[in-house]
Amino acid sequence: MGLTVSDLLLFGIYFVDLDKFKYIDNVFYSVGLYFLLRSYMKHKKSVKKKEIKERLFDKKDQSERDTLDVYR
């Protein structure tokens, strides 16, 4: 959202004469980039957690199968 607001303001600055808000797009731009990176970080973390969970689940499943094989 920050990136979008920044872009809209950028258009405003170049094509409309808005002297008062001349440099405000940078504020939204940096906020936008920050949150974009943060959301990627969160996504990466959640993917890692999911992978670990799946790996653990697979291991558990395998060990259960091994135990069953022993009983058989």
């Binding site: 001349k22 440099y23 405000i24 940078n26 504020v27 731009y29 940096s30 906020v31 920050y34």
Partner: peptide, 9 residues
Amino acid sequence: ILIFSLASL
């Protein structure tokens, strides 16, 4: 960066 951007206003 945000402080710099605000200062540049």
